[in-house]
């Protein structure tokens, strides 16, 4: 449980972090909560030469109301999110999901920005940002840009972030009604299936994590719901479902339908 050698740098601004990313390229990794990165490094499955610690950047751990949106700094920890009155009131589904992440230690250290950038296919937040139509704000050498959640996840542990970009904030529209349902894996407590449902009048938006190697918007469910069909039955339409010794394709597909149904009925 000893990582390979690396250099550690703590930065105090986003610009500084971006400069270092540009300089070190693939050899560098951003460190925020470290609760996915450090275990992988200790097993020497991941061996970056440079760690850029962004936890010292001021203002990146704030939660603010900006017009119709709640803006979450990328360095906000899971604990911060689940305890924030603003989040509880305006994006309650995010607080619900934050409360299911890991254990107390993980929630106190891990961050939303780190989790999204890591893009673990079984993480909780991807379902939520997809269902909320949240926007991920990233900064790189060419300045700041906004990425729609639906354009963000590309595959297992991969996103559309450029190599020189870091997530600085996530913008959530205010969500009146949402529900997150998680079926956790007994060992890791990651999601075997996680389903986020956001209601908007008579329509719903459904984000699903854990089922496929990339989290997805269950558009087939959304359409069936609008058409008063049996929406949950469409949870894995056209989806390549993952398999492991906790949940094979048949069972995971079934669970996805159950969790969609529960989230829709909640």
């Amino acid at each position: 449980m000893i990582p390979a050698k690396f250099e550690y740098m703590k930065v105090s601004s986003v610009g500084e972090a971006v400069d270092l990313l540009e300089k070190h390229g693939f050899d560098a990794k951003i460190l925020s909560g470290g609760h996915s990165l450090l275990p992988a490094m200790k097993l020497r499955l991941n061996r970056p030469e440079v760690l850029i610690d962004i936890t010292g950047i001021s203002g990146m751990d704030s939660i603010t109301e900006q017009g119709d949106e709640i803006v979450i700094g990328a360095n906000c920890t899971h604990s911060q999110l689940l305890r924030s009155e603003l989040v509880q009131k305006q994006v309650n589904i995010l607080a619900q999901a934050a409360d299911t992440v890991g254990d107390v230690q993980v929630r106190n250290k891990g961050t939303i920005g780190g989790s999204l950038a890591h893009a673990d296919p079984s993480a909780d937040y991807p379902a939520v940002v997809l269902a909320c139509d949240a926007v991920i704000v990233a900064e790189g050498k060419n300045g700041s840009r906004e990425i729609a959640a639906t354009d963000f996840f590309e595959g297992i542990f991969t996103t559309t972030l450029n190599d020189d970009e870091i997530i600085t904030a996530i913008r959530f529209p205010k969500i009146a009604k949402g529900n997150y349902q998680k079926f956790y894996q007994s060992a890791s407590r990651f999601a075997v299936v996680g389903v986020a449902v956001v209601r908007d009048g008579d329509s719903v938006k459904v984000g699903v994590t854990g089922v496929s190697d990339t989290p997805y918007r269950a558009t087939a469910v959304e359409e069936a719901y609008a058409g008063n069909g049996d929406a949950a039955e469409h949870a894995v339409d056209d989806i390549e479902v993952m398999s492991d010794h906790f949940a094979d394709v048949e069972y995971r597909s079934h669970l996805a339908k159950v969790m969609v149904k529960r989230a829709l009925e909640a």
């Binding site: 097993l43 894996q185 007994s186 060992a187 890791s188 990651f190 010794h245």
Partner: peptide
Amino acid sequence: ALLEEVVYDEGGQMITGSYMDYAM
């Protein structure tokens, strides 16, 4: 009864070699 098992694959690799996969 409910959680624990050491699982080896056909080649003899232990696929439950951490707390991510071995449920305590």
